[in-house]
Structures are given as C-alpha cells and as structure tokens.
Design a protein around this nucleic acid. Structure first.
Lengths: 149, 149
DNA sequence: GCTTGACCTCAAGTGAACTTGAAGTGGCAG
DNA sequence: CTGCCACTTCAAGTTCACTTGAGGTCAAGC
C-alpha cells in the first residue's frame, strides 16, 4: 500500500498541513512511520479526516471526536455513549430544521417586522420545545458548562 | 409592556449577563432604554435569543447571525442570501444524518476495526457526495477561508 | 442618610483550533 | 557534491466567544 506524505494528504483532504500535525498531536490521526523527518500517512487517514469533518460540522470538539473515532479508543468506547451522541445529533437536526424553515419563511414573508409575525414566532418556538432551555446537552461543553444552570 | 432587566433575561434565557452585554455590543440584541445604569430589555429579546441559539447550533458565527436576524438589518437582507443559508443548512442536515447513522452503526457493529467494515466506509462516503470536498461552504468562514482550496 | 446589591465599564484572561515564523533537516535531481 | 524544497520542531500569534476581576454607580429599603 502506498503511503502519503503530509502534502499529499493535505491536497486530497483540503486540510492544511499545520492542521494535520495539530490533529496528530491531539491523537485524532496517526502517521504510520517517518521517511527521514517526513510523516508518512496510510490512505485511510483520508477517511478519518472525513469523519473528523463530519464531527466538526456537528459541533463536537476535537477532543470529543477523538473519543468517538480516535486511534485505539474506539474499541473501548461504551456503545451507550455513541447512541447518546446519535440522539443528540437527532435533536440538533430538529433544531436545524426549524432554523432552516425560519430562514425560508423570512425570505418569503414580506412583513415589516418579523417579531410580530405569528408564523415566525411559532417556528422559533418549535425549536425550544424539547429540553426546556438547553439545546446542545453534551456537545461542545465550553459554553454549556456555565450556561446550563 | 413590562421590561426586563439583565438578570431577568439571563434567568429566563439561560444566557449569562456577560454574554448578553457581549451580544448587545455585537449588535445582536438591543436594550430599549436604561433605568439609571441598568439596561432594560423588551420581552421579545427572549425570542431573539432563541434565534441566536439556533444559529449557533447551526455553526454560524455571531457576526453571521447578526446579519440574518440582527436589529434593523433584517429588512435590507437580500432574500437570496437567506435562501442560500437555508440550503446550506439542508446540506448540513444531510451530513449530520450521515454522522448519526455512522455513530449508530459503530454502536451496533461489533467489528474489531471499523475502517475495514464496508458499511462504515459507505456511511462516511455518503456525507462527502455533494460538493466534492467542501462541506460547509459559506458557514463559519474561519477554517474554510484557507482550507477551501 | 446609609447600606445593600444588582447592575455598570473596561481591560485582561481563557480555551479551542489553528496559523505563522524562524531556524533546521534531509532525500533526491542535476 | 551541491542545492533545492518540502518537510521538520517549537514558540508565539490569531480569532471567536465569552468570562473574570477591579473598581464604580445608583435606586431602593431601613
């Protein structure tokens, strides 16, 4: 199997070399060996990077992504935690759906003040109808740690 | 109509007073007046904060959220931009769906190495099947500005 | 009139996720 | 053998979204 150096991985994934080194430091990916100084990556790192990108889109921190898909931790991760994550993403999808519908409404509704439009208010209310005031329960944890009270 | 002071808004929204001041500075919300030094907010700020939370969940920066829902900019925002945002959220929902399915698969599949599991690889591939390698076209713009090449 | 306490401002600090810059290394083409 | 250049390390810098801390204000209650 052909190994890729960091420039190749960067070109194929769209992720900057500096970010790749950062990910390696963080334990999200690993180079299989060195060729001189240069890192050599297995092609499957491209798949892992796709996974990382997906996790980032979902708002997970790199630390959390490492917990889900990182090297060697995978086998030890309790399956319940994974399902919890999946459920959290489901809730996030609901919220995103409400936001998308709200945006489309705003684009179509010619009302001067959207705050007075009942359709608008109803759309916004729909997103909050699940867990009270918390919308991202166990996700990025940096803003929720203090706000969640 | 009864006005709320910052502590009240914080209590009802779950957003810290310091964050509310920060949002005001950033033009996302506005206090209607002052009572002495104290900001007085109209109740509808709670709706705006819900909107802001939704935008954050979607990965938009505060600046972008201000562009979508901020004070007084709303009426000038081209409707095409809103629809574009909505489309971007649709793509994000697709990606999130793939991630959720992947997570559920990992939780159920007992394979020792997921990288070798064809179902796993197929799930990951599904997320990338839209715009080539870019997944968040016009969203947060801080990592895409350099990576998008 | 004095105290209380929730508010105020402003500057600096924080953490995440990178990027940038400086100085160095080393495989390979010529 | 030389020089190139893509890589290397490490420290410091950047942006975002806040939080924290110090010192100050003021409406209200006793």
């Amino acid at each position: 199997m052909e190994l890729l150096d960091i420039g190749e991985v960067s070109a194929r994934s769209g992720v900057q070399p500096s970010a790749l080194r950062y990910y390696e430091d963080a334990g999200l990916i690993a180079s299989v060996r060195r060729h001189g100084l240069r890192r050599q990556f297995a092609p499957e790192v491209l798949l892992q990077l796709k996974l990382i990108a997906m996790g980032k889109t979902a708002g997970f921190s790199l630390h959390e992504i490492a917990g889900m898909f990182g090297q060697s931790e995978l086998k030890e991760l309790p399956r319940a935690v994974l399902r919890e994550r999946a459920d959290a993403i489901d809730r996030q999808i609901d919220e995103l759906t409400a936001l998308r519908d709200t945006l489309r409404h705003v684009a179509d509704c010619a009302a001067p003040s959207h705050m007075e439009c009942p359709t608008f208010r109803r759309l916004i209310d729909m997103a909050g109808r699940r867990g009270g005031k918390r919308s991202k329960p166990a996700l990025s944890s940096r803003q929720d740690s203090k706000q969640g009270g």
